[in-house]
Design a protein around this nucleic acid. Structure first.
Lengths: 343, 343
DNA sequence: CTGAAAGCGCTTACAG
DNA sequence: CTGAAAGCGCTTACAG
C-alpha cells in the first residue's frame, strides 16, 4: 500500500505521454485530445496521484491557505474560546469547497508577536491571505498591513479601528441600540451597564451607541467597566445596587458577568426579573441553564467566520474588498427581563 | 515599502556572491568564509529576505506543518470546544520554537470525511505529520494510518483503540480510580455514575475502571448513560434518586451533567454535599461558579497538546514513537463532596 | 572557500 | 494535438 509519493512523471510514463500532456489533462486545460485526457485521468486516479502541494505552490504562487494568528491569554483561555472556535468553523466551511486550509498559529505574546508572524508569512509567502482578529487601537498589525497594501488581509474588527483596510466590522452599535430599545419598550428609564474593559475597542463602540440611544429615548444609563469575570460582575452589580438610585435593568457585556450579576442581585433579595431586568450581551448555553434563563444578544458566530472566508476568497481572486458589516445581532428574550417595576 | 518578494538571487546579486554561497551562509552550513557569511547575513537582513516557503518545502521535502482535522458537530459546538481549543494552544506552543505551523481543517462529515482529508494530505505531501483526535472504534482513520506506516501520525485516544499506532493515551483509567478512592475515603459505599454515551471509547474505559476499583474496595456502583447535556443530567439524576436504594454520591462524566444533577437534587430537597456528594469529571469555570462549588477531576489540557506536539516533532525527526500516557488527572476538592451521610 | 549545475514536482509558453 | 524546454526559489553534491 504505502507507495512512495507518485509524481506527474510516473503518471506520464504509465500512460505513455509527456509530462506536459499529463499536466494539461489533469488541469482540464486544452492541449490534449479527449482520448488522451481520459486515459491520463484514469491512470492518475488508479495510481492515487495528487499534485504535490509544495511544487504546485512554487509553480503557480498560490499556497491555498489563509493564515490566522490567535492571541491566547494564559489566564482567560475561556473568554474568547468559543467565539474563536465557532469563527474558525465558519471560516473553514467557506474555505473548504475551494480546498483552502487554515494555517494556524497561536501566541501569548500579544499583538506584537502576532505581527511578527504575519511579517514572516508575508516575506515567505506562506499563505495567500491573512485573517486578523482581536485588533486594538494602535495595534502594530494595522501599520503592517497599511504598509503592505499588496498583501491580502482581512480584519474582523470595529469599523472605526481599521479604516481603509478590508474589514468585516461588527454590529456592536446596532446591538447596543437594540437592547436599549427593548428595555425602553418594557418601560425601563433608568438602567445601568456592566461593561467590559475600556481597552477593548468594542467596549467603546458599545459605550457610545448605548449612550446615544439612551439620550434619544430620554433614558438614564450608568456604565461601570470591568473584566469579563464573575467576580467583577458581582462586585460591579453590588456597587450599582447599593449606591445612588437603583436602576430597573442592567445590561451586562458578557454572559459570565450577567449570571454573576443575577447572583449578586439574589444575594440582596432582589428578584429578577420582577425587581430588576438583566440582559447578557453574549448568548451561550449558560444563559439557557441559568435560573431564570437570561435574555441575551445572540450572534451567529459561524456566519461571521463564513462571511470572512468568502471575503478572503474574493480578495484572493483579485477582487477589491472594503468594509462590510457582519450579520446582525438578534435579541433573544428569555426570563431575565420584564416590565420595569418602578417602586 | 511593499517590495516584491525578494529571493536568494537578489541577495546574491546585492552581496556579489553566488546563489549557493548565499544558501550556505544563510543556513549556517560550511562552504563560505566567515567574512562572506557575515556580509550575506547582513544584506539578507537589510533586504528583509525570508526563504520562500513553497520553494524550501519542495527542495527539502518538509512543509514545516502538522495537520489537524477537527470534527465539528453542528449541534454541540460546545462540548469539545474548550478541550480542542486548549489542546491546539498546547500544540502550538510545542511547535512554535521549531517554526512549525498547524494546518487546520474542520469537517461536519465525521470520521469518514476527516479520513479523506488525511488521505489527500498524504498524497499531496501537504503536512509533515498528522494529529488525530476523537477516534472511535472502527474508525476508518485507524485503517488508513495502519496502511501508511511511513506516514507520521499521532493519535490522542484511548490505549485500547489505537494499539500499534503512535498514541498519546488518556488517563481515564487512573482518573476513575482516583475518584472512587476519594469517595471511599469519605465513607461512601454506595455510589452512582451519570456517564457519557456508550459510543465513546473513553466512556467504556471509565466504566471498566470504575467498576473494577469499586469491586476492589467493596463498593456498589450503578451506572446510567446519557448525552453530555443538562437535560440528560437532570433526568438521569432523577432516576437515580427516585428508584431503589439512594446512593450517597454521584460521579458525573462532565461538568454540565454534574451541575444539572445538583439542580435535580436541590429540586427534591436533597442537599449537596450533606445528603449527596457530586463529582464532575471535567473541570471548568462553571464548576467554580456553581453553588456549591463542584469537586472535579481536572486535567491540564494544554499540557496534553504540548506533549502531543513534542511527540510529533520527535516523529518528524525520525524517532520511533509508541504509546505514551498523558499527564495525570488531579482531583480538585471543592464543596460538592463530603463525608457519606448514611441515614 | 567558491561558482556552475542539477534537481525537487509542477506549470506554461514555445516550437513541431 | 503533442513533446522538449525553461522556470518557480531553494538546496546540495560536484568540480574548480
Amino acid at each position: 500500500m504505502p507507495k512512495a509519493a507518485i509524481t506527474i512523471s510516473d503518471v506520464a510514463k504509465a500512460s505513455g505521454v509527456s509530462k506536459s500532456a499529463v499536466s494539461y489533462a489533469l488541469n482540464g486545460k486544452p492541449g490534449v485530445s479527449d482520448e488522451t485526457r481520459a486515459k491520463v485521468l484514469a491512470v492518475a486516479r488508479d495510481m492515487g496521484w495528487k499534485p504535490n502541494s509544495a511544487a504546485k505552490s512554487l509553480s503557480d504562487a498560490r499556497t491555498r491557505s489563509v493564515g490566522v494568528v490567535l492571541l491566547v491569554d494564559d489566564a482567560d483561555s475561556f473568554g474568547a474560546g468559543m467565539f474563536t472556535m465557532d469563527c474558525l468553523a465558519g471560516l473553514s466551511k467557506a474555505l473548504d469547497p475551494r480546498e483552502y486550509s487554515i494555517v494556524l498559529r497561536m501566541t501569548a505574546g500579544g499583538a506584537a508577536a502576532a505581527c511578527h508572524i504575519h511579517e514572516d508569512w508575508i516575506a515567505s509567502g506562506k499563505v495567500d491571505a491573512h485573517l486578523i482578529l482581536g485588533v486594538e487601537l494602535g495595534d502594530p498589525r494595522l501599520t503592517l498591513f497599511r504598509n503592505h497594501p499588496e498583501t491580502k488581509a482581512l480584519f474582523i474588527s470595529q469599523r472605526a479601528v481599521t479604516s481603509g483596510l478590508p474589514t468585516l466590522y461588527s454590529a456592536d452599535d446596532e446591538g447596543a441600540r437594540m437592547v436599549v430599545r427593548h428595555l425602553h419598550e418594557l418601560g425601563h428609564r433608568d438602567i445601568a451597564r456592566i461593561a467590559g474593559p475600556e481597552e477593548y475597542v468594542h467596549t467603546l463602540a458599545r459605550d457610545n451607541a448605548t449612550a446615544d440611544e439612551c439620550a434619544k429615548l430620554g433614558m438614564h444609563c450608568t456604565t461601570l467597566h470591568g473584566r469579563y469575570m464573575a467576580e467583577d460582575g458581582e462586585r460591579l452589580c453590588g456597587s450599582i445596587l447599593e449606591f445612588g438610585q437603583r436602576p430597573t435593568a442592567i445590561i451586562c457585556d458578557t454572559d459570565v458577568t450577567a449570571i454573576a450579576a443575577m447572583r449578586a442581585a439574589a444575594a440582596r433579595g432582589i428578584s429578577v426579573p420582577d425587581d430588576l431586568s438583566i440582559v447578557a450581551w453574549d448568548d451561550s448555553p449558560s444563559c439557557l441553564s441559568a435560573t431564570p434563563t437570561v435574555t441575551a444578544l445572540h450572534r451567529d458566530v459561524k456566519a461571521i467566520g463564513r462571511t470572512a472566508g468568502d471575503m478572503l476568497l474574493r480578495m484572493i481572486d483579485g477582487e477589491t474588498v472594503g468594509a462590510e458589516p457582519e450579520p446582525p445581532y438578534r435579541l433573544i428574550e428569555r426570563d431575565s427581563t420584564g416590565p420595569a417595576n418602578v417602586a
